[in-house]
Amino acid sequence: MNPGKFNSSIFYLFILLLFFSCHKKEKSYIETISLNDVQLSKARPGDWRYAHDEKIQTFEDFQKLKKIKPEPGKNTIYLQPVGEFNTLQKKEIELTREYLSKYFQLEVKILPVLPNSVFPKSARRISKYGQEQILAGYVLDSLLIKRKPEDALVLMGITEKDLFPKPEWNYVFGMASYETGTGVTSLYRFSDGNLSASNFNESLERLIKISSHEIGHMFGISHCLNANCVMNGTNTLPETDFHFARACSLCQLKLNASLRYDHQKRLTDLKQFFEKQHLNSELSRAQQDFNLFK
């Protein structure tokens, strides 16, 4: 064998390997953060998944849906408080506005508070435990739909009253409509009807989870069966607490397909919010995602 030809072959092989290594396809943001998705545990009696036979919504299923998307002149999320709110509750709503603006990367505004008198007698009941409850469907279909601002992408009601979805149900944390882009969340159960400085962060974390979950539904995302995720269905507060505020990689893929935000800016914004509010578990999860880009 000619040594010159052999050395030349080695050289060209080296150049070829170097070319392919330099042009190796980089992983996308979604592929990268999927490494931090946490598998769902087996559903237990009382869990949402145990009682509901839901099918996973693939990205292809999501893409086929007719759904709400931002458009010029219609790209703002509005929050509509209804009720009598104390100082801590008002602070909680303002922080939720701030969080949702970072989570969805859209402008979020709070409308003037409406009084509880907007709920007619036909939309109220007293539960077997003695608290007044409001029919969630009435809030969506009769109250909010008529008050949705012209530039509103979605309108989320926030009430301090407990909610129920239909006569045979005890309560619901929130409800949303894909078609009308309206939803409602109740503060009532997040602090057992008594928000204080000691339970403020616990209540806030529950509120940001349920609010982002319900607005996620308005954007066409079904209950998540892919991983532990803010879009998991939930029956109880312990189940809500167990689920992350983090959207899994599949749900982030769906969300970004409609909203087209910058992934890393969103992640940085969320990390800063969790750090500022001392929501340490969610900060740790955001930091884990962030570390993948160092």
Rank of each mutant, 00 (worst) to 15 (best):
K67H: 03
N86A: 08
E107L: 04
P112R: 06
E84M: 00
I93D: 00
K90P: 01
F85A: 05
E107D: 12
I68H: 14
D53F: 04
P112M: 02
Q57H: 02
K109V: 11
L106Q: 09
K66T: 14
S101K: 11
K102Y: 13
L106V: 05
G83V: 13
Q105W: 08
L114K: 08
P72Q: 14
P70D: 04
T96V: 08
L106M: 14
I110P: 02
I77K: 01
T87R: 14
Y99K: 11
E107H: 10
P81Y: 02
E92H: 12
K74M: 05
K74G: 11
N86D: 15
N75E: 13
T76R: 15
E92M: 15
I77H: 01
P70A: 03
L88I: 07
N75Y: 01
N75D: 15
F59P: 02
Q57Y: 00
E94I: 14
E71P: 05
L100Y: 04
S101C: 06
F104W: 02
T58I: 03
G73L: 13
L111A: 11
K109T: 09
K55F: 06
N86L: 07
T96P: 04
Q105S: 15
I68F: 06
Y99H: 14
E84K: 12
K69H: 07
K90A: 07
A51M: 05
F62P: 08
N86Y: 07
D53H: 15
N75I: 04
V82C: 11
T58N: 04
F104I: 02
I56E: 15
F104S: 01
I68S: 10
L88V: 04
F85K: 12
E107K: 14
P112H: 03
V108Y: 09
T87Q: 14
E92G: 00
Q57A: 11
L88F: 06
Q89D: 12
Y78P: 02
L65S: 01
V82G: 10
I93K: 02
I56M: 13
Q105G: 10
Y103G: 00
E94A: 13
T96D: 04
L88H: 09
L111F: 04
I110W: 05
K64V: 12
E60N: 11
F59G: 02
R97Q: 15
D53V: 12
L88T: 09
R97M: 04
T58L: 07
L95G: 00
K69N: 06
K91V: 13
